[in-house]
């Protein structure tokens, strides 16, 4: 009796280990995929990158068939919009601008669809004010959740926007602000301009700079407001992977997280979030250090890390300030809206 219980326990335990190992394996696989995208730019696909990260967190249970179907639907909808719609834009990059405008419409506009002589209404993606930082569950930040519920935040909305742009054969640059991600495009007529998907407004740069948490050095060093290239976007996804890993395995030893951080920082040296996560992980490791001299030495190194983060212009924005700032775009719309882009705005 005793023996069989022990065997049963052993079997259960090994099952549990295998399961944990399997999960770990998915994270490792995702890391390898992302790292390969950085090494070989031909293998780059933002869609693949994002969904591999979400799949690892969901323990391989991401419904890829459904997701691909949805993305396919949204892409065809964009294409039909491009065909049927009039866009008051005259420069030679009109085909590209038209693609951006159609994706924007899909994200933010209600669109009537005529199918079999019946009129259907397509409803856009809305903003979900619950758990915008994914504290309750990381899934709230996921594009798969956005596709399912049509509600998202400043993480999932711009990611989906970028994925759709790439499906249409164009690009979109992600850009960072404190606690925030938005879209930058460069057109012949307007130069660089911003697209804010959480409110569906094209804000001028002053909106972000005036948030009060953007040090000018952070702008000039490209910590914030830089149009991120594809490599730098992958760096963002790498930190998502690391954050998800921490959420899944709270007591991990930091090795995997640090690996993600280092790779992200190589691709995007002034990426504040990666620098902070690296420092925080180092801090965790230092706290476990028994040897006092080693501890002190490492702590000195850590101070340098934080000093560097401060130096490049990063300042912490309290999370409760974030929503106030986000809403300021609507309350002070007149002040912060880019008037040059009225042809594309829906109002």
């Amino acid at each position: 009796m005793k023996k069989s219980t022990a065997i049963l326990l052993l079997i259960l335990f090994s099952k549990f280990c295998a399961n944990a190992q399997n999960q770990d394996r998915l994270f490792e696989q995702s890391y390898t995929l992302l790292n390969n995208m950085l090494i070989n730019e031909n293998s780059y696909s933002f869609k693949k990158a994002v969904f591999s990260v979400e799949n690892a967190y969901l323990e391989g249970k991401l419904d890829t068939i459904n997701i691909n179907r949805q993305i396919h639907f949204l892409t065809s909808l964009s294409n039909s919009l491009i065909k049927d719609r009039f866009l008051a834009y005259l420069e030679k990059d009109k085909p590209t601008v038209n693609k951006w405008a159609s994706v924007y419409q899909i994200m933010c506009d209600t669109i009537p669809i005529n199918y079999d002589d019946k009129l259907y209404k397509y409803s856009p993606f809305g903003y979900d004010f619950n758990d915008v930082f994914g504290h309750k569950t990381r899934e709230n930040l996921f594009v798969s959740k956005l596709l399912e519920t049509h509600k998202g935040n400043c993480h999932s909305l711009p990611y989906l926007y970028k994925i759709l742009c790439e499906e249409l054969g164009t690009t979109a640059n992600l850009a960072l602000a404190p606690n925030h991600i938005y879209i930058k495009h460069n057109s012949i007529k307007d130069g660089w301009y911003n697209t804010e998907l959480t409110s569906g407004i094209f804000p001028i740069d002053a909106w972000i700079m005036a948030s009060g948490y953007v040090h000018l050095d952070a702008v000039s060093n490209g910590v914030y407001m830089k149009a991120l290239n594809n490599r730098e976007s992958i760096a963002l996804v790498l930190i998502d992977l690391a954050d998800n890993y921490n959420a899944k395995f709270p007591n991990n030893d930091g090795t995997f997280v640090l690996k993600c951080c280092e790779t992200a920082i190589t691709a995007y040296p002034n990426f504040a979030e990666a620098l902070i996560l690296r420092a925080e992980t180092h801090l965790k490791q230092i706290e476990k250090e028994q040897d006092k001299t080693k501890h002190d030495l490492k702590f000195k190194e850590l101070e340098k890390e934080y000093a560097h983060i401060h130096e490049i212009g990063y300042r912490n924005m309290p999370e409760n300030m974030y929503l106030d700032w986000l809403i300021s775009l609507k309350t002070e719309r007149n002040k912060y809206e880019n008037k040059a882009l009225h042809t594309m705005s829906k109002h």
């Binding site: 740069d205 972000i208 700079m209 005036a210 009060g212 000018l216 407001m225 830089k226």
Partner: peptide
């Protein structure tokens, strides 16, 4: 304050990245 400069609304992030203003 620097926010006064920025509030003119005509300083783009690229202008700061290229160090043409406020340096």
């Amino acid at each position: 304050a620097p926010s006064f400069m920025v509030n003119s609304g005509y300083i783009k992030a690229e202008a700061l990245q290229n160090h043409i203003y406020l340096q």
